[in-house]
């Protein structure tokens, strides 16, 4: 289907959705794509993280590293890190908070701006990725990212997961578990947080008016980290 036709259909769907009672619609926009269908800019994948529910566990980090086959060489300074727990402490009152931080999947990603080969790119549905086939390992993107979300692979890798190829000399970061999202599943961190953690993380289509994440963003306060940079992040936080 050509993009114009799809756009028109989506407008049709949006109009239908508006005409019916809230929550009732004839066409479901957030269906999982079929494997033949390209990612669409009608969608924007994102996360909403309620840090009041985020405790002292690291279920999200463990699940991410398990899913993506990120192993440690016991050299923390150079080990790859796709997601990390950050602790905040108010120096006056001692009030402590903790939150998971990963690639924020910006609408205007600085990593993409600086990439000399076009390896760092944003997919139509908002997921920011590295095309490791064209990455030359210059690490400009690592420098440009305000969230320090990217890692460089310093050592030869073995035992990779079939879904997540990784190798020395390229940059990598959270992919929002793109291989799972493309088959209609949620990212591993979100699943683990719901199962073993505090249920602080939610995944969904920020554009889809019927999705839980859209409704919460519409009716509850939330924030972006470094909102002053106007990057319009796809990962939003509550309770910060």
């Amino acid at each position: 289907m050509n993009p114009d036709r799809r756009q028109v259909l989506a407008w049709g769907a949006a109009a239908t959705a508006a005409a019916l009672a809230p929550g009732l619609r004839l066409v479901e926009l957030a269906q999982a794509r079929s494997p033949q269908e390209a990612a669409s800019k009608l969608q924007r994948w994102g996360l909403l993280i309620d840090i009041t529910k985020c405790g002292e566990c690291d279920a999200c980090v463990t699940a991410c590293h398990e899913e993506n086959g990120i192993t440690s060489n016991a050299r923390p300074a150079t080990d790859a890190q796709w997601i990390r727990k950050v602790s905040l402490r108010d120096t006056r009152t001692g009030y402590a908070q903790t939150l998971p931080l990963m690639c924020q999947h910006c609408e205007h990603p600085p990593c993409v701006d600086v990439c000399p080969t076009g390896a760092s790119f944003k997919r139509a549905d908002g997921i920011v990725l590295v095309d490791k086939h064209t990455c030359i390992g210059c690490r400009y993107c690592v420098m440009a990212c305000p969230y320090a979300a990217r890692s460089f692979v310093h050592e030869t890798v073995s035992g990779q997961k079939a879904d997540v190829p990784r190798g020395k000399g390229t940059v990598e970061a959270c992919t929002l578990c793109v291989h799972r999202v493309d088959r209609g599943a949620t990212p591993a961190c979100v699943e683990a947080c719901g199962r073993d953690g505090g249920g602080a993380m939610a995944f969904g289509d920020l554009n889809d008016a019927s999705s839980a994440i859209h409704r919460r963003l519409k009716s509850e306060p939330s924030s972006q980290i470094r909102a002053d940079l106007a990057l319009n992040t796809g990962v939003r936080y509550q309770g910060l």
């Binding site: 794509r33 494997p35 269908e37 990612a39 997919r123 139509a124 095309d131 793109v178």
Partner: peptide
């Protein structure tokens, strides 16, 4: 490779 990475097309 390009179809999968850039457009998310995962036909086997």
């Amino acid at each position: 490779r390009d179809l999968t990475l850039h457009q998310g097309i995962r036909e086997p």
